[in-house]
Design a protein around this nucleic acid. Structure first.
Length: 293
DNA sequence: CATGCGTGGCT
DNA sequence: TAGCCAAGCAT
């Protein structure tokens, strides 16, 4: 396997050079701040839905300082329907930290990146690699799936990221920084376009000849079950409904407007309390609510 | 390590 | 059609 790594790497790098999508965050003019914005937006949200919001955000807030100068509620409003709006709040907090602690420049160091709100292991590595060209293993769900199939012969990786996976990813990472960066983005793109979760296109896969999963006849996933997330009727849906009201109006809204969008009073109040706790919503008067400052 | 956290499209 | 899935993070 080690002996074939370089051809595997080359196959992916070459494939990416031919098939990479022209995504907005892959332009020559893209800054590290833009990369950070795109990565946070892409956490659990599909590319097609991120694209228009990314364009609006980067045009309106071209630098961390520009975003930090605005109320956090504006970030939440501009987040639109991307989902998980705490990400907008954290991006605003990250922008503030970058302005205050890093002279307005997105840090290159993964540990400094990880210290930013909303930036975890994946996002820190992604910014270090895609924005700055550093050499790090980038392990998102796409990469994990490709590696699981090629090296372990399993349809999907286990639910949690393991130390063994990190070691495996480092083991196949090319030594040369520039090549490593192209491999990292390439294997991720391969997972997004070819080695997909539902219907992998093995017929056009550039690494099929090295794939244990393909060799084994593409056996179904038989590992521990992932818990399926219900949504209808949950607190999450209720929170989403309440926040949508506040996003769509200019100023504060009275509690009666919020009461109108969710029947169950107990759940509605629990959800609103949660939003207040999370600082996604602010209480600005007697029974009066608004997006935060 | 398990859980909560939005939203919408696809099979 | 009801899950399943989508460039995770924080606690």
């Amino acid at each position: 396997m080690v002996a074939s790594s370089s051809s595997l790497n080359a196959a992916v790098v070459d494939w990416y050079a031919l098939h990479a999508r022209a995504l907005p965050w892959r332009r020559d003019s893209t800054t590290a701040w833009h990369v950070l914005v795109s990565e946070v937006m892409l956490q659990q949200t599909p590319v097609e839905r991120v694209t228009p919001v990314y364009e609006e955000w980067t045009s309106r807030w071209p630098t961390p300082s520009a975003l930090a100068a605005e109320p956090s509620g504006e970030a939440v409003r501009a987040w639109g329907r991307l989902g998980y709006p705490r990400r907008a709040l954290r991006l605003h907090a990250a922008a503030t930290a970058i302005r205050d602690r890093h002279d307005g420049v997105v840090p290159e160091d993964v540990d400094e990146l990880r210290a930013l709100p909303g930036v975890g292991e994946y996002t820190a590595a992604a910014v270090a690699v895609f924005a700055y060209g550093h050499r790090h293993a980038v392990l998102d769900t796409n990469v994990r799936r490709v590696l699981a199939r090629v090296f372990d012969g399993t349809a999907l990786p286990a639910p949690g990221l393991t130390a063994a996976e990190r070691a495996q990813a480092l083991g196949v990472l090319p030594d040369d920084r520039s090549t490593a960066a192209r491999w990292s983005i390439g294997v991720m793109e391969l997972g997004a376009l070819v080695c997909t979760a539902r219907s992998p296109r093995c017929g056009v896969c550039p690494v099929r000849e090295w794939c244990r999963w393909y060799d084994a006849g593409r056996p179904a996933y038989d590992g521990p079950l992932r818990r399926t997330q219900t949504y209808a009727g949950t607190d999450r849906q209720c929170r989403g409904r309440l926040l949508a009201v506040l996003r769509e109006v200019e100023g504060p809204v009275g509690g009666e407007v919020l009461r109108a969008v969710w029947e169950d009073a107990t759940q509605r109040e629990r959800a609103l309390d949660g939003l207040l706790d999370d600082r996604l919503v602010a209480l600005v008067g007697d029974d009066l609510y608004a997006l935060p400052d």
